[in-house]
């Protein structure tokens, strides 16, 4: 589904990604771990098409098509979804309006009828329950005054609504208490499907107890330095990043 070859990217003239290689097939769940500042968010943002980052080399294809040629919104419509590490607020724009606009943009792209306000309201209410968000949140401004945990649940709710082909989840577990972590994990597990891939970015291994990945990759210094199965995460938890010769200020959870 997604194929990344020797990807280089920089921001403000500083190279962050220094040759990433990664193959993800439909139905798989991949976890990317790594210390702070290793480039995890950069990789997520680059895949989603944030133009703040400059691609300096390599290629990325989605089902054989060149992804890097597509504008951000086109990538989204082709099924790339990014759950943001720091979701931004849009004051005055209701979550409901925002989500309906997004869902209808996707439907239009697929040649489907747009959903009217009533139909969408019904769908959105169901999905908000799935992540334990009070439907009252739908009426609030996008991320406006949401707590950290609410923002994260809101991101997963969007993934559930938009049903992407590739869901990239950037630190969706950070700042969550145990209950919220369970809710978010249930949401992500509900996303798992034969025809969908998930790329989970996390600093901590604890999320992987709830969402068991097929593959684990360690990102350090802008490169994937080690790949393995589920057991790699456990080993990291036990021995820390230092075990791989990587410096990290914080690997505990």
């Amino acid at each position: 589904m997604l194929s990344i070859k020797n990807l280089h990217a920089s921001v403000e003239g500083k190279e962050i990604l220094k040759g990433i290689n990664l193959e993800i097939k439909a139905g798989e769940v991949h976890a990317i771990m790594g210390p702070n500042g290793s480039g995890k968010s950069t990789l997520s943002q680059v895949l989603a098409g944030n133009e703040a980052f400059e691609i300096t080399g390599g290629e990325v294809t989605l089902n054989g098509d060149n992804l890097l040629d597509l504008a951000t919104e086109e990538r989204a419509r082709e099924g790339i979804f990014l759950a943001f590490q720091y979701p931004v607020e849009i004051p005055g724009v209701s979550n409901l309006q925002f989500l309906r606009t997004a869902v209808n943009a996707m439907r239009k792209h697929r040649g489907e009828e747009e959903m009217n306000a009533a139909e969408f309201m019904k769908l959105a209410k169901e999905v908000s329950k799935q992540v334990d968000l009070d439907p009252a949140f739908l009426k609030r401004g996008v991320n406006e005054g949401f707590s950290g945990g609410e923002k994260k649940r809101n991101e997963i709710m969007q993934a559930l609504l938009l049903q992407p082909k590739l869901a990239i989840l950037d630190e969706t577990d950070s700042g969550l208490d145990i209950d919220a972590l369970q809710v978010v994990s249930n949401g992500v597990n509900a996303l798992r499907a034969e025809d969908r891939a998930i790329l989970m970015v996390t600093h901590y291994q604890r999320l992987l107890n709830h969402i068991v990945p097929d593959y684990v990759h360690v990102l350090a210094g802008g490169k994937i330095v080690k790949s393995g199965g589920r057991e790699l995460a456990l080993e990291l938890e036990e021995r820390g990043y230092g075990w791989l010769g990587i410096k990290d200020e914080d690997t505990s959870n």
Partner: peptide, 21 residues
């Protein structure tokens, strides 16, 4: 970026943000 990442046209995004304002 958030709006576009959700598939929304840049034009529509600006107008939505301005309308919210």
């Amino acid at each position: 970026f958030l709006c576009r990442q959700r598939g929304i046209d840049p034009e529509q995004a600006v107008s939505m943000i301005v309308n919210g304002f």
